[in-house]
Amino acid sequence: MTTTEGRNVAIVTGSARGLGYELACQLIERGWLVAGIDFDADRQAELAERFGTERYRAFVGDVADETFVDDAIAEIARIGHIDLLINNAGQPSFKTPTAYVAADVDKCLKGLKGMILWSVATLKACGEHDLKITNVMSTAATRGNANESVYCATKWGEKGYTQSLKAAYKGSSVKIVGVYPGGIDTDFYRDSHDYVSLEKQHSFMDPAELAEVILFNLVNEANLTVSDIIIERNYR
């Protein structure tokens, strides 16, 4: 196995596309080894070939599958100490209040369940020390939005979990960061063009620029932690 001595190890969920992909790329550019988590096997194979296993380890599975999470964490922990976990994976469902069905609720809750499972498993693997957990949510966790009732409910749950982790690990070497971005120009909205038009979507934040801003706050030499990051797009 390739040695990682002296290198930082990060886990990024939802790493195959969008913001997760940009976060993984920019961490790799900074010299990190990234364990990328995603259910898209073809895309994961592509990224593993592009970056090589010295920089990117691809794990394919459902972020909300406890067995997959535990097996992946065990393998990643053998690579080296996990310094950073970025819980980024999630799926939306944007509908009018009366259009939601149980499947929509389950779809949205996968992100919350995955956030919890990956956080718990990583904390155990690190012995609850020297770890930064970053939960990427949405500004939907800070307010209610029309046609996003279930999505907002899930994000508010993720915010509650994030704040509870902060309280549990206050004063320790485990740092918890909540990231609340506004709309991002990715495929996240591809099934909701009746709600978010392509024209509107393309006015949203660029995922590469957003990743740069997030990592500027997360990965630096300063002896401090930015605990909450709310990022909105500029209107021009």
Rank of each mutant, 00 (worst) to 15 (best):
A64P: 02
D42T: 03
G157D: 01
R7D: 10
A140E: 02
R7C: 09
T122A: 03
G18V: 07
Y169L: 03
A41C: 00
T154W: 00
A167R: 10
A77F: 02
P92E: 05
G6K: 09
V34Y: 01
A102R: 11
W32P: 10
I231R: 03
I229K: 04
D191C: 10
G18P: 06
V177F: 02
R57A: 10
G14S: 08
D71Y: 03
E199S: 14
L84T: 06
D70A: 14
A64K: 01
A24Q: 07
A89K: 01
G90W: 05
P92Q: 08
K166I: 01
K175S: 08
L131K: 00
G160M: 07
L131S: 00
D206K: 13
A72Q: 04
Q201M: 15
L198Q: 15
N135H: 02
Q44C: 05
K107Y: 03
N223H: 12
Q44R: 01
R190T: 14
T142P: 00
Q91P: 03
T154D: 06
V213M: 11
F188L: 14
V177R: 06
V101G: 07
K124F: 03
R236K: 11
R17K: 14
S138R: 04
D71T: 13
N88A: 10
S203T: 15
R55Y: 09
E199K: 15
L47H: 08
A58Y: 00
T4G: 05
L85Y: 01
Y100T: 08
Q163K: 12
A58T: 02
F188Y: 15
L109I: 05
L112N: 12
N8I: 05
T134Y: 04
A222M: 09
D185S: 13
I11M: 10
E209R: 15
L198H: 13
M1G: 15
Y161F: 15
R30A: 13
E46W: 00
A48L: 02
G111Q: 07
I231M: 04
D206E: 12
D191K: 14
L131E: 00
V60D: 04
L47R: 11
N223L: 12
L117M: 14
A77S: 11
A64S: 14
A41V: 06
D38A: 10
V226H: 08
H129M: 08
V174N: 05
S173N: 09
L33A: 09
M137V: 12
Y195M: 13
L85I: 00
G171Q: 04
I133S: 01
D228A: 03
N223T: 11
Q91I: 12
G14L: 08
A168I: 05
S197K: 13
G31S: 11
A48Y: 06
N217G: 11
L198S: 15
Y56V: 05
A35N: 02
V219R: 04
V9P: 02
G127A: 01
L224K: 09
E212Y: 12
A125Q: 00
I116L: 13
I231Y: 00
Q91E: 13
T139D: 08
D106T: 10
A208R: 14
E46I: 04
R17A: 13
G171F: 06
G171A: 07
N234G: 14
A103R: 10
G111H: 07
N223W: 09
